[in-house]
């Protein structure tokens, strides 16, 4: 098969396509860097029966009363439930959550979910996708 001719592989259209494909994400990235960094600080979000109760900065020290049933404490960049009026006290025994230890504090009897938002989840890979 010596007569097999090779079409030129990279031409002006290819270069234009590649430039567009590089320019679009670069523009998106720079837009993110210009506009979005302030929004992405991690915060603690409290949900009561699925509805947002409040969002709180992680870097402050605060004691938050959630309704009349629970009390949440934010200290040293971590949040933990310090009081609950239920019997089992699961949420009180849950480990504190913060940026380095993301997760949820859940109080089932009072329908409360506390979670870290905008946190960067470090290197926990669940599986590989091909």
């Amino acid at each position: 098969m010596k007569d097999f001719r090779v079409r030129k592989y990279i031409g002006i259209p290819d270069l234009l396509l590649i430039i567009v494909l590089i320019a679009v994400p670069t523009a998106m990235l720079s837009y993110n860097f210009i506009s979005g960094t302030a929004k992405d600080t991690p915060e603690i979000a409290v949900y009561v029966y699925g509805e947002l109760y409040g969002k709180y900065n992680l870097n402050t020290h605060a004691i938050i009363e959630i309704g009349e049933t629970n009390t949440l404490e934010i200290a040293n960049g971590r949040a933990s439930m310090i009081h609950a009026d239920c019997r089992d006290q699961v949420c009180v025994h849950t480990a504190p959550i913060g940026q380095e230890s993301p997760g949820h504090i859940v109080c089932l009897p009072n329908g409360i979910v506390v979670s870290v938002e905008n946190a960067e989840y470090p290197g926990n890979i669940d599986g590989y996708v091909s």
């Binding site: 290819d14 396509l17 494909l21």
Partner: peptide, 11 residues
């Protein structure tokens, strides 16, 4: 028919 292998593969 505009693009070569490299452009097609990049897209």
């Amino acid at each position: 028919g505009l693009f070569g292998v490299i452009g097609v593969s990049a897209a």
